[in-house]
Design a protein around this nucleic acid. Structure first.
Length: 738
DNA sequence: TGAGAACGTTTTTTT
DNA sequence: AACGTTCTCA
């Protein structure tokens, strides 16, 4: 029990908050920027603020718009608000940008030429669509892969640009300036099949808010308060969307954004740190509250992290201070190892010791730069029998059999879903290849109907013959009956029957490959999962928006995940492997992003260290296998940037090399050339750097013939071949000719 | 049309 | 090395 001040007794939920936190919660009116360093109680502030507004009667639950970045964060917030209020509340506008936009767009779909039942496409569908769009343009898909084009669209969408808003000047990256036209065609096609891709959820909603004043006014009336989490990771379109909703005609907006410029790690997804840096300009009169007291990590860990991030320029400036004076804790360990196998061995060994001392495995995480780095750890853990889980690895809903089954589901729900129909029309094999599909498309277009209707038409008119006719008749009949069954017996039974009668389940039963039984299990699991939802539509919506795997957080396992995936989490002990130049910071960031992307890598390192409550262990290996061959590596510059007295170095391998970081070595100005031979000395690497194929060199390639080097990108060369045009080639595939 | 061979690329990070 | 895509032939 706390003693209440005489003047204003403060409610329980404001107990044990520090003054800054209280200010962030109690400043309900007007724009507010909360700069919250790692581990400073950000989530607590956000949820308490939410509850505070409700408990003071300032708004009804549905009048608060609360935006998070991940579904996980949304769920956590929902739970904690419920705990504070002592009850669960439905109908909250709390979710990710995309989930909230999807909900809005279902209400207003007609303004952008969709109907409320529109489909949200997955990446497979998007790619198939892009390929179709590209076809008539006769674009060399070798040079201009569909994924690349999709990326261009994505970036435009991230910036809130509709096809009409893209200027010719913006359209230079791809296929000689055809991207704009392709973008328009792509959007047109999406509309025609009543579908949205992920970016459209935001793009369409922004368009509606911009062009429909009464819709905008409706939301202005509705949302009295806006809360935004992870503001540093908002991209342009999210920013525009927020600003539109926040700037009501009456008075200053009650918008509170929480963020940390030091944890901005999503610029590759279009995030603009500038959004947070500019907040006070965007919302004049904004209060700024800094949360700097860290209650998570030991003083040593904070010192290491702060020292590292201090190497970044352009910061709003925050200093993490330990929440309590005691417990300086262990220094950050830096261990030098020989290769990635030893790295895994050492980490696993340390984990076994911790386990023997009674540390729960659930409080241990291994955080890496990229997903593929989990391999050696998984192997090691398997041989030792250490329980682990890969968080955010291959996701359930990305498996082929699940996507197939869901495509069946989509056609069931919406017969006009051409993309889903295309996916399953020949799975299992029904004798419909590329040519057959073309014919079906033609028939459908002829009667101005979707594919499925086209098939029915073709069956009636007798345009289909033999095996094709029989197989498609069976398929269409299965859909027909499944729809009827859905009415009578519910969607689970209908789906079961559909997958059975269409031959899909039998296809896997007949499959003799070792994965087949697992796939059948997965489908069983899918059928179970849809039982948790009232309707198939609800289930599809959930799957489209919630990409994460159900976490079995209850089990006591070590977590393996990417640094990006670890944001917002904390563990007692954190292992940070692969701190080597070219791995972390990644080669790509060194090659193309310049200083900006190097700083982002540094923020990622900062995020990594600050995940640890008590113990952080950084590892780096002397050599690592890249693709098929070994490559020498040197310690990450980030290791040298951590204050010496905050770290403790160990490991027999290459003790002396620790000082030799990129910052003060011969490699400072360029990437390291790949090596194919193991056990290479540094001097050898130096020689290779000294003798590359410089720009202008005439070279010969086995397949492409003669050409000239246009550009050197690490161990890749950008070459203009006389016959084959411009290509990017690994340097060792070409030889110099004089 | 489909199976197998040959070829090329891959490793950022996610809603 | 491992995977996915395209190519080639039956």
């Amino acid at each position: 029990m706390t003693q209440s001040p005489i003047s204003s007794p403060s409610p329980d939920y404001l107990d044990r908050l520090n003054p800054e936190q209280r200010e962030a919660i109690e400043t309900t009116e007007g724009p507010l920027l909360i700069l919250a360093g790692a581990g400073t109680g950000k989530t607590r502030v956000l949820t308490t603020r939410f509850a505070h507004i409700l408990l003071n009667g300032r708004a009804r639950p549905w009048q608060i718009l609360a935006v998070t970045f991940t579904n996980k964060a949304a769920r956590e917030m929902r739970e904690r608000v419920a705990a504070l209020l002592g009850e669960t509340i439905d109908g909250l506008w709390l979710g990710t940008f995309h989930a909230l936009c999807a909900r809005m767009l279902r209400r207003h779909a007609e303004y952008v030429g969709l109907t409320t039942g529109f489909t949200i496409l997955d990446t497979d569908d998007q790619l198939r669509l892009v390929r179709q769009i590209m076809e008539p343009y006769r674009i060399d898909t070798k040079r201009w892969p569909p994924q690349g084009l999709l990326g261009v669209f994505q970036r435009w969408k991230d910036r809130g640009l509709t096809p009409a808003q893209v200027t010719p000047a913006e359209d230079t990256d791809f296929a000689a300036g055809h991207a704009r036209a392709l973008y328009a065609a792509y959007q047109e096609r999406l509309r025609a099949v009543n579908a949205c891709d992920f970016g459209d959820l935001m793009l369409h909603m922004l368009e509606i808010l911009r062009t429909q004043p009464d819709v905008l006014a409706q939301y202005h009336r509705l949302f009295r308060y806006i809360l935004v989490d992870e503001y540093q990771d908002t991209n342009t379109i999210q920013y525009l969307w927020l600003r539109l909703l926040a700037k009501r005609p009456e008075g200053a907006p009650n918008i509170a954004c929480v963020g940390d410029d030091d944890q901005s790690i999503y610029s590759w997804r279009g995030a603009e740190v500038e959004n947070i840096l500019r907040f006070e300009k965007d919302f004049p009169g904004a209060r700024v509250v800094r949360l700097e007291r860290n209650y998570r990590s030991t003083a040593q860990i904070l010192r290491a992290a702060s020292g590292l991030i201090a190497h970044n320029a352009d910061r709003l400036g925050k200093t993490l201070r330990p929440g309590s004076d005691d417990a300086r804790g262990e220094k950050v360990q830096v261990i030098s190892v020989w290769d990635s196998d030893e790295e895994a061995r050492i980490a696993a060994g340390a984990i076994e010791r911790l386990r023997a001392e009674g540390h729960p495995l659930s409080q241990i995480a291994i955080l890496m730069r990229a997903g593929f780095q989990t391999r050696p750890f998984e192997e090691r853990f398997l041989t030792l029998g250490l329980p682990y889980r890969v968080v955010g690895g291959l996701r359930f809903y990305e498996r082929a059999e699940i996507r197939d089954a869901m495509a069946y589901m989509r056609v069931l729900v919406q017969p006009a879903d051409d993309l889903a129909f295309e996916r399953i029309v020949n799975v299992p094999k029904r004798g419909i290849g590329a040519a057959g599909l073309q014919k079906l498309h033609h028939t459908a277009r002829g009667i101005g109907a979707p594919l499925a209707a086209g098939v029915l038409h073709a069956l009636e008119t007798g345009a289909l013959k033999g095996k094709q006719r029989e197989a498609l008749a069976t398929l269409m009949d299965a859909f027909e009956r499944a729809r009827a069954l859905r009415e009578r017996e519910g969607h689970v039974v209908a789906m079961e029957m559909l997958l059975e009668e269409s031959g899909y389940l039998q296809m896997w039963r007949d499959d003799r490959s070792p994965e087949a039984p697992g796939r059948l299990d997965n489908i069983k699991e899918l059928l179970r999962a849809i039982g948790d939802f009232g309707t198939l539509e609800g289930f599809l919506e959930h799957v489209a928006l919630v990409t994460e795997t159900e976490d079995q957080a209850s089990s006591d396992t070590v977590s393996l995940m990417t640094l990006h995936g670890a944001k917002g989490l904390e563990f007692d002990t954190v292992f940070l492997p692969g701190w080597e130049e070219g791995v972390f910071p990644s080669q790509r960031s060194l090659d193309e992003g310049g200083l900006k992307s190097l700083e982002e890598e540094r923020r990622l390192a900062y995020v990594g260290i600050t995940r640890a409550r008590r113990r952080a262990v950084i590892l780096h290996a002397a050599r690592r296998r890249i693709y098929a061959n070994w490559q020498d590596s040197i310690p990450s510059r980030f290791i040298a940037e951590i204050p010496d007295d905050a770290i403790e170095q160990s490991g027999q391998a290459l003790q002396e090399r620790i000082q030799l970081t990129a910052r003060n070595s011969v490699f400072a100005n360029g990437p390291i050339r790949g090596t194919t031979r193991p056990f290479r000395k540094l001097t050898d690497v130096r020689e290779e750097i000294a003798a590359p194929l410089p720009v202008g060199t005439r070279v010969f390639h086995q397949k492409f013939g003669y050409g000239t080097v246009l550009e050197v990108e690490g161990d890749r060369l950008h070459i203009n071949f006389e016959k084959a045009g411009e290509k990017r080639i690994m340097a060792h595939f070409v030889e110099q000719v004089s």
